[in-house]
């Protein structure tokens, strides 16, 4: 249906990849948060186990998730993200209007 009459900016392939990686990281973050907070925290408080003084649900869903997802953000940025130019490419063969 949509005929491409122009060439798409080649950098967008890379930016799409980067965006997708961050969305996946977010989804993982949300799942981790839910599973540990309510998986361990929904029992009555007298049955809680404690790690370093904190209730286990809190330790995993708040403290570990902070450390884990900071590290994952760092890993993804170093692996997936590329150092591409963001300035507009001053392309001389683009020309003002090609007849």
């Amino acid at each position: 249906m949509e005929k491409k009459t122009f060439k798409e900016d080649s950098r967008y392939k890379q930016t799409n990849k980067e965006t997708l990686s961050m969305v996946i990281l977010l989804i993982a973050n949300i799942i981790w948060w839910y599973v540990f907070a309510y998986g361990l925290g929904s029992r009555p408080p007298e049955k809680y186990t404690y790690i370093m003084g904190f209730p286990a649900w809190f330790f995993w869903s708040c403290i570990v998730s902070f450390v884990l997802f900071s590290v994952l953000a760092w890993v993804i940025v170093s692996v997936v993200f590329k150092d591409i130019p963001i300035d507009t490419i001053e392309d001389e063969n683009k020309g003002e209007d090609k007849k």
């Binding site: 950098r11 890379q14 799409n16 965006t19 963001i86």
Partner: peptide
């Protein structure tokens, strides 16, 4: 920064 990210800057 990841979602708006470079696309927005470009």
């Amino acid at each position: 920064l990841g979602v708006l990210g470079k696309r927005f800057a470009i």
